[in-house]
Nucleic acid binder design. Structure first.
Length: 768
RNA sequence: UGACCCGUGGUCGAAUUGGCAAGACGUCUGGUUCUGGCCCAGAAGGUUCCAGGUUCGAGUCCUGGCGGGUCAACCA
């Protein structure tokens, strides 16, 4: 199992395996449509699906969902396959929905024969108009009543190409008044005389997503079909199709929240637009959140995988801070990228006191990198040292000198000392300026005093040996955390400085770093040299900058004030809520007098309003309560039905129909007279629901009798207290919440049989 | 105002299925340091959306409300 904890999908898989579904196998798939490039959001899905297959020793297919010939392109299938492999996953099979067209068609004929699908002659507008709205039912097509034989003939002629595009469609025959719009006779096939990149001209009808997807999953014997939240409404249809075709152990669809990141949008359409408008340099522009873009930026697959695992999988819409992705990129590169020095905005330094050029040994990594968690990367010699020469003419970063330093400035100042990284400490003796007052050159002297206390350490390059580098300083694509929010136009929020090219100088060994290598330019960030050089120049791209506490402080990031919360009086809220509830109830009772009498009867018998309402508005529960009330106090029966029974039924997805009212009443009586505690009563109820029977007999057969005897419970309480001395001490030290924990232990020790009231009294007394 | 899904520190997200509200990022201290990086130690930050109910005990169950998302392509 992954070290990154659990999530609802894993919980579901564990539960399915526990009951032996699919023989405990896990088969997933990643199903992109080849109509664009994959982005970081897809990476999350890829890591999820392939990660599940890996952790459960299952399989994961890559399946191209290529059911729409007009948008798809083989260019994208190649790109997608390359991206998946680059991320580090090898599909167990590379498959295409288009390979299933024949089977899909055969199944469609089957549904037609079964009267579960029909051919509709209505055009696009008519279908749209008769679908209804979210609050109004749709109206059936005039073609809905066609006979299976006629439909079959029409479908075959559709396939044979007798009709023009849009003339006819095949629809599932479900329910035009269904509250879920996806179930209002959804389309299965449309006519499209178009060339498909794989099936060529073999077909002129193409399956819709809903029809193709679940059946493709079933063909591949997928166990868990994982998709994003927006398909949740489609699940009912997914299940309808697999049910209609009668698959055994059909695949089950599970939906999770797609990844959103601040400073980014994850929209294929927007990507397409900025690529076409030339605002970025293609789908793989290093500013793009596409996998290809991240790769060209120099981000490693390891960083993406670690990020994807970390953000987790849930059903709540959420937006992850882009800073988190950047953190994972740094964390990975910190251990992999050899250190180098480069000056991007040079200021000349004339160094005196150097008798001859120095040859300095500079380690590839600082010592402490070795102590990082995780093994050192392969192929990196941690002891490696490169030689850096230092002559009398140096270049330092312009921002590393300040004639008038701000407080806390730990770099070069007139008359001040700094260490030149891997080299000597120097003192700034003179500052040369041009006519405009701009600093043009510094004169510094080597300070040969081992006691010297420099203000800080700065990097440098030797002017005589430095090589020219062009560093593409990439920044976030958007300037604001939520693009498009201000004006509704994404382009308005594009970061104008997302690409700044710096012409700098680097120590010579930077040129020796091979194509495809990653380095840390010390005090700047991590850079990447493209596998293919762009020209004669040495070009590096900034993958991500180093964390920079100083720059953040300089910018003076001001945290916004806490928004003032309006003071609300809970009592007032409660009163208001009660009024709303009461109003709704009176309105309901106006039309349902029987509900009102039941409600009144239950509340006067002592049930709470909520419990009474739950029962009074449900005919089945109402008659159940009536039957049960012959054997136990009606108020208690009401409370039990509303709070315990309803929950149990919900968990087993069962209805109240057929529940034994007499047994229920007797059960409540047993709880009321103290024979059973509430917890034991719940267990007995579960048995009644599962296999039926008399509550007393069930309880006796299993020894489920509440223990109220103080002496017997005292022994249990003593044992628990003795077994948890730390918790007892913490409780006595003031951690009141530990009482709940200890009480839980007592209940557990008594196998749930302790009378909670008595046990609690004992416990409280002993804890003092 | 139909159906479905979702509300847990600033941001993500766990919680053994009713029993001590994890962890990470971010923030703030301090230490270390020849990278203002990394690392180490510590801290702050929560009425688990709200109100009722059930229970010895509720983030978890029930009822209602509020807020957000998705669905009315011959896209996926």
């Amino acid at each position: 199992m992954s070290s990154e904890g659990t999530n609802f999908i894993r919980a579901r898989i564990d539960a399915d395996r526990a009951v032996g579904r699919h023989g405990g196998a896990v088969r997933t798939r990643f199903p992109p449509e080849p109509n664009g490039y994959l982005h970081i959001g897809h990476a999350k899905s890829i890591c999820l699906n392939f990660g599940l297959a890996r952790d459960y020793a299952g399989t994961c297919n890559l399946r191209f969902d290529d059911t729409n010939p007009t948008t798809e392109d083989p260019e994208f299938v190649d790109g997608i396959l390359a991206d998946v492999r680059w991320l580090g996953f090898e599909p167990d099979a590379v498959l295409y929905a288009s390979d299933y067209f024949e089977q899909l068609y055969l199944w469609a004929e089957q549904l037609v024969r079964d009267g579960k699908a029909y051919v509709d002659d209505q055009d696009l507008e008519e279908i749209r108009a008769t679908r209804g709205t979210v609050t109004e039912a749709g109206t059936p097509s005039p073609c809905r009543g066609r006979s299976p034989a006629e439909n079959l003939d029409l479908l075959r002629r559709m396939r044979a190409g007798e009709f023009v595009d849009g003339a006819k469609v095949l629809r599932a025959k479900i329910d035009m008044a269904h509250p879920n719009m996806k179930m209002r006779d959804p389309l299965m096939y449309r006519i499209r005389h178009a060339h498909h990149y794989r099936t060529g001209d073999a077909w002129c009808i193409y399956p819709m997503y809903d029809w193709a997807h679940g059946q493709s999953d079933a063909l591949e014997r997928i166990t868990h079909s994982i998709c994003t939240l927006e398909f949740a409404n489609n699940r009912e249809l997914y299940d309808w199709f697999t049910e209609a075709l009668g698959f055994e152990e059909p695949p089950k669809q599970l939906e999770f929240a797609r990844l959103n990141l601040t400073y980014l949008v994850m929209s294929k359409r927007f990507f397409k637009r900025i690529v076409e408008e030339g605002r970025v340099d293609g789908w793989d522009d290093p500013r793009m959140p596409t996998i290809a873009g991240l790769r060209r930026r120099g981000v490693t697959p390891e960083a993406i995988r670690a990020f994807a695992e970390h953000v987790g999988v849930a059903k709540a819409n959420s937006t992850v801070d882009l800073g988190l992705l950047e953190w994972f990129v740094r964390d990975d590169l910190n251990r992999k990228a050899p250190r180098r020095m480069a000056v991007l905005d040079p200021l000349e330094v004339e160094l005196t006191g150097l008798p001859a050029p120095l040859a300095l040994d500079a380690p590839e990594f600082p010592r402490d990198v070795r102590d990082l968690p995780g093994a050192p990367p392969e192929g990196v010699d941690w002891q490696a040292v490169r030689t850096v020469s230092m002559g009398s003419r140096l270049l330092i970063e312009r921002s590393d000198f300040a004639a008038e330093p701000p407080p806390g400035f730990r770099r070069l100042v007139p008359g001040g000392l700094v260490r030149l990284r891997h080299g000597p400490v120097v003192r700034c003796d003179a500052v040369e300026r041009d006519a405009a007052g701009e600093v043009t050159r510094l004169r510094c002297a080597v300070v040969d005093d081992p006691e010297a206390r420099p203000r800080g350490v700065i990097h440098w390059v030797d002017a005589a040996s430095a090589v020219r580098v062009k560093v593409k300083l990439y920044d976030r694509l958007f300037a604001v955390p939520s693009p498009g929010e201000r004006t509704g136009e994404l382009l308005d929020d594009l970061n104008p400085h997302s690409l700044v090219v710096a012409d700098g100088w680097a120590e010579p060994s930077v040129a020796a770093a091979g194509p495809g290598s990653r380095l840390q330019l010390e005090r700047h960030g991590y850079v990447y040299r493209a596998p293919q050089d762009e020209g004669a120049d040495l070009v590096l791209t900034l993958v991500v900058g180093l964390k920079d506490v100083w720059a953040a402080k300089e910018e003076g990031v001001v945290l916004s004030d806490e928004p003032e919360e309006d003071e609300v009086d809970p009592a007032q809220v409660a009163a208001e809520q009660a009024r709303i509830k009461a109003d709704a109830r009176t309105a309901h009772f106006l039309e349902h007098p029987d509900a009102e009498s039941a409600f009144t009867a239950l509340t006067t018998a002592g049930a709470s309003d909520d419990a009474a309402w739950t029962i009074a508005t449900d005919a089945t529960l109402r008659s159940l309560a009536e039957t049960a009330s012959a054997h136990a106090p009606p108020g208690a029966v009401g409370t039990w039905i509303a709070n315990v029974l309803v929950n149990e039924l919900k968990m087993r997805e069962a209805s109240a129909e057929g529940v034994d009212g007499v047994a229920l009443g007797r059960l409540v009586a047993l709880v009321e007279d103290g024979t059973l505690s509430a917890a034991l009563g719940k267990k007995v109820l579960a048995v009644i629901l599962d296999e039926g029977g008399d509550p007393r007999a069930i309880a006796e057969a299993r020894g489920w009798v509440q223990v109220s005897d103080a002496a017997a419970l005292e022994a249990v309480v003593d044992a628990v207290l003795a077994a948890h001395p730390d918790e007892v001490a913490r409780y006595r030290a003031g951690e009141a919440k530990l009482a709940g924990f200890l009480m839980g232990q007592v209940m557990k020790a008594s196998k749930g049989k302790a009378n909670p009231g008595v046990a609690r009294g004992l416990l409280d007394a002993k804890l003092g």
